[in-house]
Amino acid sequence: MSLFSNTFTSLEHSLNYAAEKNRAISSNIANVDTPGYKTKNVVFKDMLYQEVSTLTAKKTDMRHFGFQPFNKVPFSTITNSNTTYNHNGNNVDVDKEMSELAKNQIYYQALADRMSGKFNRLESVIKGGN
C-alpha cells in the first residue's frame, strides 16, 4: 500500500501493536489467579523508533540537523518479574489491567476507524468521486 501513502503502513503497524497489546492484557487477566504468573506488557518505544526511522528531514540550510537513524526493532512483549502483589507470587492488578484493556480497545477502534476512512476516500477516488 506504500504506493499511495505511508499512512496505511503506519496504521497497519499501529493496529498490529494494539492487537499484540490486547493479547498481553487478556493473558494477564486470564492468569489473575495463577500462582507465580508475572504480567506481560508490550513495549511501544521500539515501535516508535521504527516509525521515526522512516522519516526524512528536509533541510533548507546546511547547518540544520537531520533525524538520527534508529535501529528498526519491532515492538516486543516483556515480562514484569520485579514485583509481587499477591501471596501466591502473582503480580496481576486486575483493576489496572481492565483499565489498560479499555484504553487499548478505544485506541484500536480509533485506528480501525481511521483506516476505514482512508479506504473509503481511496474507493471514492477510484469510483470518480461518487
Rank of each mutant, 00 (worst) to 15 (best):
M98R: 14
N71S: 13
Q109S: 11
I25R: 04
L55I: 15
A30I: 01
L48Y: 07
V32C: 01
P35D: 06
T54Q: 14
F8K: 03
E12T: 14
I29N: 00
M47C: 01
S14K: 01
I106F: 12
S26K: 00
D95E: 06
N80I: 02
V32R: 12
S124F: 09
S26V: 12
K40D: 00
L55D: 11
V52M: 15
E51Q: 15
G89R: 04
S116K: 13
A19P: 00
N41Q: 13
Y107I: 00
I25L: 10
F119Q: 07
V92I: 13
F67L: 07
P69V: 06
L101I: 08
N16S: 14
Y108V: 04
E51I: 13
F44Q: 06
D95F: 10
N16G: 09
I106E: 00
D61C: 11
T54A: 09
L3K: 04
K58S: 07
M62N: 03
V92T: 04
D113Q: 08
D93L: 05
S76E: 15
L122C: 00
D46C: 03
A18P: 01
S99R: 14
A57C: 10
L122Y: 15
I126K: 12
S5N: 03
L111R: 02
Y17L: 06
L3P: 03
N82H: 10
Y107A: 10
L101Q: 10
N6C: 05
T9M: 09
Y85P: 03
L48V: 14
D95R: 08
T83L: 09
Q68P: 00
K59E: 02
I25M: 07
Y49M: 09
V94Y: 15
I106K: 15
E20Y: 05
I25Q: 02
L15W: 08
M115H: 09
K21C: 02
E12K: 15
V52P: 00
T34G: 09
Q105E: 13
G128F: 04
D95V: 10
N16V: 01
S116R: 13
P69L: 07
M62L: 10
N31M: 12
Y107T: 07
M1V: 03
H64G: 04
I25F: 09
G36M: 08
M115W: 08
S27Y: 03
N88D: 14
T56A: 12
I78S: 07
I25A: 03
H13G: 10
A112Y: 00
K96Q: 11
F75W: 02
I29Q: 05
F4D: 08
T83W: 05
